[in-house]
């Protein structure tokens, strides 16, 4: 009881968010039922009632999807591309934040930050257009290669190379913006720690290694876990806009596959079924990442 007398403000503070979560996050989960039914919008009195009124089919929807070999290929691609991006794109914003931190000229620093976070606001349609311009067979990069006497590379139509195009364009677009979290975290590191390190003879590099980086660990852990959870839903917008039939083999991911399958059909069931599958896997991944972080750094997000 003594606990409650002291702690009740905490529960009050949580109230709005809790209300929000129940209404906007938990209630709609009722719609997950669509994944187990033969759903049609007009089955019941209205679309919601239709969920209950539609026929229960158990795991049929899942079975239908999994039996398609193309889906399994898309699944594999999703993981491969997701892992590739995680490994390469995760450290970049951290590095950027660390580097920018070393820049002493205030205006330069501010200017660079602003420019770097710009591409985040371009839609993928625009970014795709930019990369097409540069990477097409008659584009800048290939002209450059030709000048050097090398063979042209078909960036956008070569399956293996294309995956790297996805990674690089994602890096270009998001690094700056993703660095903001780290920049904010760095700015709140107490300067006394730096002063102490300097007295001990640490140069800039050492200070970064022994003060900045360790202080960033909590942020890094959180971001890592969150990013892991997003692998599956990652950037299908990007792929949808940038891919073409020639690279389906290596670049078709779950979401793009679902998109193509659903054309012309208003088939909600497919979307919800795959979505549920994605959610379950993502959840597992997040828990896994959490565990990993705990083992390595002793801290967790949860």
């Amino acid at each position: 009881m003594k606990y409650l007398r002291k702690a009740w403000p905490l529960y009050i503070l949580m109230l709005p968010a809790l209300l929000y979560t129940i209404v906007f996050k938990l209630l709609p989960l009722y719609g997950l039922g669509i994944a187990f039914k033969d759903y049609s919008l007009f089955n019941g009195r209205d679309a919601v009632d239709a969920i209950a009124a539609s026929e229960f089919v158990g795991l049929d929807n899942f079975r239908k999807i999994f039996s398609e070999p193309e889906f399994l290929k898309a699944l594999a691609n999703t993981f491969i591309i997701g892992a590739l991006k995680l490994v390469i794109l995760f450290p970049l914003p951290i590095l950027l934040a660390l580097f920018i931190n070393e820049i002493k000229q205030r205006h330069l620093k501010s200017c660079l930050q602003t420019i770097c976070y710009l591409p985040h606001f371009f839609s993928w349609v625009v970014v795709a257009g930019i990369f097409f311009n540069i990477l097409s067979t008659s584009g800048l990069v290939n002209s450059f290669l030709q000048m050097l006497g090398l063979d042209k590379i078909n960036f956008l139509m070569n399956g293996k190379v294309f995956r790297w195009v996805l990674v690089v364009s994602d890096a270009w677009k998001e690094t700056g913006f993703s660095a903001i979290v780290y920049i904010a975290a760095i700015s709140s590191i107490s300067t006394t720690l730096y002063e102490a390190a300097e007295i001990d003879g640490a140069g800039r590099f050492d200070r970064m290694l022994h003060v900045t980086l360790p202080q960033l660990t909590p942020s890094i852990v959180i971001m890592f876990i969150l990013k892991t959870g997003k692998i599956l839903e990652e950037n299908y917008q990007q792929i949808l806009v940038m891919y073409n039939p020639v690279v389906y083999e290596t670049a078709d991911v779950i979401q793009t596959y679902v998109y193509r399958m659903g054309i012309g059909q208003m088939d909600y069931t497919l979307g919800v079924t795959v979505g549920l599958f994605n959610s379950i896997i993502s959840f597992a991944l997040v828990l896994l990442a959490n565990l990993l972080c705990k083992l390595i750094t002793g801290r967790t997000a949860i």
Partner: peptide, 27 residues
């Protein structure tokens, strides 16, 4: 905070589990 862990998992759960556009729209 008592039950803190529960809420943490709850939020993690809601972060990953969504029912999609239709139920959101209907809500």
């Amino acid at each position: 905070l008592k039950c803190g862990k529960f809420f943490n998992y709850l939020y993690l759960f809601t972060m990953v589990f969504t029912a999609g556009m239709i139920p959101d729209y209907l809500l």
